[in-house]
Computed example of a mutant assay.
Amino acid sequence: MTPTAIPFTHTSTDPRTSGVLTVTGRRNTPQTPAAAARVPLIIAIHGGTYTSGYFDIEGYSLLERAAALGVPVIALDRPGYAGSTPVEPGESIILANAEALTHVIGELWQQHGDGHAGVFVIGHSIGGAVTTAIAAGQPTWPLLGIAVSGCLLQVPDGPRMAFDALPDILMIDLPGPMKDSVMFGPAWTHATTMPELSHSCDTSVPRAELIDINNGWISRVRSVNAQVTVPVHARQGEFDALWITDAGQAADYAASFTSAPVVDGRLVLNAGHCVDFHHAGAALQLSQLAFALECSVAKQDAT
């Protein structure tokens, strides 16, 4: 599968400051429309230390898998990444991301949503936290459902202490060996071309994100998840080193979506934090796309 995504830029007004808000990214190019009359418009939100290229690595591309099904995907660079305007973190940079992207996605829906059943949002890691916060805000645009990976409820002491000890500078470049050790599972869970292939979408990360996800977010994740009222697909890699990860934690995380009509949550065996980049990645992406299409069908049946 060779990625054929095209660059994407959207300019808007920051709802918090009224300043210019530019969001970059990439979108796929479905060659033929899907068999269904309407399909979802998928928005993909990456995690920390990666750009939107996370969703378009050759052989691991969510955008290309979706294009083969005739499903449009727009992968956004979150605020502060690539060409996207940073946001002031305020109380929580994750919630600030959610507010800005809720506004942007609403405009993208107006521009690109014609003929689609609604919006489905896929988020990984910190992008998954942002995704749940977007859903919890119950946006005015038609949100069909969400899929998150790399998010749970509790962080091990080791990663939290390491991130708390980072130098007090705006952007952090994580050393390659350190990053690979927490993003990937054992060598047998991924191809020999990984993690090297994933480094094409590496970038620096706002320090505020690492502090927030390991501290503030943990204190509010259950209350945020409880406000999500759309279907939820949740997956967690068995060998995720950034979260306390076991079947019980995955089940507890799924159970925290107390207002969601459907919750499909479980561990993904034989995969690390970035499930997409492991042997299990194709199955993850196909299950996310299938769930999105199911949500689209459910929406059509209800109208």
Results as ranks from 00 to 15, higher is better:
residue 2 T to P: 02
residue 4 T to K: 03
residue 23 V to Y: 05
residue 23 V to N: 06
residue 25 G to F: 14
residue 28 N to K: 06
residue 28 N to I: 08
residue 30 P to K: 10
residue 39 V to M: 09
residue 44 A to S: 14
residue 44 A to W: 05
residue 45 I to L: 15
residue 48 G to M: 08
residue 49 T to S: 15
residue 52 S to I: 06
residue 52 S to R: 04
residue 75 A to W: 08
residue 76 L to Y: 07
residue 83 G to M: 01
residue 85 T to Y: 00
residue 91 E to H: 11
residue 110 Q to L: 14
residue 112 H to T: 05
residue 116 H to M: 12
residue 119 V to S: 10
residue 120 F to Q: 07
residue 135 A to D: 10
residue 140 T to G: 13
residue 140 T to H: 09
residue 146 I to M: 12
residue 148 V to S: 07
residue 149 S to H: 08
residue 152 L to Y: 03
residue 167 P to D: 02
residue 167 P to C: 01
residue 189 T to A: 12
residue 190 H to T: 09
residue 190 H to Q: 12
residue 192 T to H: 11
residue 198 S to L: 12
residue 206 P to S: 05
residue 207 R to N: 11
residue 209 E to I: 03
residue 212 D to K: 02
residue 214 N to G: 03
residue 225 N to I: 06
residue 227 Q to L: 14
residue 234 A to L: 08
residue 236 Q to A: 01
residue 237 G to K: 00
residue 240 D to S: 04
residue 244 I to C: 05
residue 245 T to L: 01
residue 251 A to V: 03
residue 256 S to W: 07
residue 270 N to C: 09
residue 274 C to A: 15
residue 275 V to H: 09
residue 291 F to C: 07
residue 292 A to K: 01
residue 298 A to S: 12
residue 298 A to I: 00
residue 299 K to T: 13
residue 301 D to T: 09
residue 303 T to R: 10
